[in-house]
């Protein structure tokens, strides 16, 4: 009987330990919010959150500092929009090819090969962008510098492509065979079936994939830091130099005194990023759940 008692005590202890490990994720999420607000907090009192609405970002100045996140937000939005414009059609088409057309052997090669792209460190891609992509953009458009929003978008697109391909492919593959067969039985060709039946049926999954892709692209730091030129100006031109929120944090955090107003402003940018990606994520999960595409 005493042996059995010991068994039960170990069992209870392990259970407790595992609950603890599982709670770690919840704790970390809470701590992220807590510490971001803790570091950013004082800014809300002085100089006040209104300062974030400023139209300029000039954090270091002899006259008056400006902490308007608008230009940074627009930089991020511009780069992200451009990146998605390139990424989404390509990714969906490639996903269709892999899921519906490629022969099994071909698929075995394509899937892991495209996965490699996802494991290339972003700083390496940024480096490649700096040395290869930027000069191409510069010559092609006859610019004085290749460090533009477009260059950043192209690199981000490279990063988002594997994610969106893989998630879209999952969505396409999960469309029931019965549905495809029904269409084929009605005399639709293979391609008609793909574009009129399979693709619409997989659409929610693809939409979710795009949302997650946007989240990833907005949060990407190194590649954009290295190739977008980093001028904090309000622009809608793909060929202008821009500065994103992530790049601003990465570039300036190393040089600010801890606890200064500038430091706090950078944490506010972090909070904005966190909130944006948080909601993109939640919406994507909702879409997946609603259409029963949760894995």
């Amino acid at each position: 009987m005493s042996r059995s008692r010991k068994q039960h005590i170990t069992d209870k202890a392990m259970r407790l330990l595992l609950v603890g490990a599982a709670s770690a994720s919840v704790l970390i999420v809470c701590l992220i919010f807590l510490f971001l607000f803790k570091e950013a907090g004082p800014f809300a009192l002085k100089p006040g959150l209104g300062k974030l609405m400023d139209s300029q970002w000039i954090p270091v100045s002899f006259q008056e500092e400006h902490f308007g996140v608008g230009p940074l937000l627009s930089g991020s939005a511009l780069v992200t929009a451009l990146a998605m414009l390139v990424t989404v059609p390509i990714s969906v088409l490639v996903a269709i090819y892999i899921a519906e057309i490629a022969r099994p052997g071909e698929r075995e090669f394509l899937k892991p090969f495209i996965e490699i792209l996802a494991s290339i460190p972003s700083v390496v891609l940024g480096f490649f962008g700096l040395l290869v992509v930027a000069p191409i953009v510069k010559t092609f458009f006859g610019l004085s510098t290749g460090l533009t929003a477009l260059t950043g978008a192209l690199l981000l697109s490279l990063m988002a492509i594997p994610t969106i391909i893989s998630l879209s492919e999952d969505a396409l593959v999960s469309v029931p065979y019965a549905l495809k067969n029904a269409s084929l039985a009605l005399g639709a060709s293979h391609l008609q079936t793909i574009f009129r039946v399979t693709l619409p049926a997989a659409l929610p999954g693809i939409v979710a994939a795009v949302m997650l892709g946007i989240g990833r692209v907005i949060g990407e730091t190194m590649a954009v830091l290295m190739v977008t030129g980093n001028s904090a100006i309000l622009t809608a031109s793909p060929l202008a130099s821009v500065r994103t929120m992530t790049a601003t944090i990465a570039a300036e955090m190393g040089e600010v005194p801890f606890g200064s107003v500038h430091y706090q402003a950078l944490f506010w940018i972090g909070i904005i990023l966190l909130v944006i990606t948080f909601f993109l994520n939640i919406i994507a999960q909702r879409v997946l759940k609603k259409y029963g595409m949760m894995k």
Binding site: G219, M253, F278
Partner: peptide, 9 residues
Amino acid sequence: GVPSIVFGL
């Protein structure tokens, strides 16, 4: 989904 730079912060 948290951006890596936010993890940095």
